[in-house]
């Protein structure tokens, strides 16, 4: 079974689909949960401590806004860990939404740069497109299982 990075990383539907086909979704909820539950001196009250944007320097230089670097400290390690990826372009806000467009551009770029299977789809606008959308994700996830 593969570790699949999903974009938008906040999409519960996408996360659920990946898990249903026996894979491990790499998503925002998981990263933030680990971040909060890992006991330590710097356990932050919110998602991010002031130290995290510095960890994000591995993925974005110091002239990049702190919010991008802070977000990358969450998502960067997951992208490195991923064995596959699913990218949904122009998703509806209700499907899953990530706050910063610049971070999103960087996440998609870094994910595509990895030499791993990546499925890219546009968010469906009709019922027919919706059926094709789910089928494409299913085929991709089933295929991942076979490769393994």
């Amino acid at each position: 079974m593969a570790k699949v990075f999903i974009y938008p990383a906040t999409s519960l539907i996408l996360s659920d689909l990946v898990a249903r086909f026996g894979h491990t979704p790499l998503s925002a909820a998981q990263s933030i949960r680990e971040h909060i539950q890992t006991a330590g001196l710097e356990s932050p009250p919110l998602q991010i401590s002031p130290e995290d944007p510095k960890k994000g320097l591995k993925y974005a230089a110091v002239e990049v806004p702190s919010g991008v670097r802070g977000r990358m400290s969450l998502y960067g390690p997951m992208i490195e860990d991923a064995e596959a990826g699913i990218i949904i372009h122009d998703a509806d806000l209700a499907f899953g939404c990530m706050g910063c467009a610049r971070t999103n551009e960087l996440i998609i770029f870094l994910l595509k740069k990895r030499d791993i299977p990546v499925l890219e789809l546009n968010y469906p606008k009709t019922d027919a497109e919706g059926a094709e959308f789910v089928a494409a994700i299913r085929d991709f996830l089933v295929g991942l299982g076979r490769e393994k």
């Binding site: 919110l46 998602q47 991010i48 401590s49 002031p50 919010g67 802070g70 706050g99 910063c100």
Partner: peptide
């Protein structure tokens, strides 16, 4: 806002 919680400055 956009970004303060991810910059560690919301507190």
């Amino acid at each position: 806002s956009c970004g303060p919680e991810y910059s560690g400055v919301q507190k």
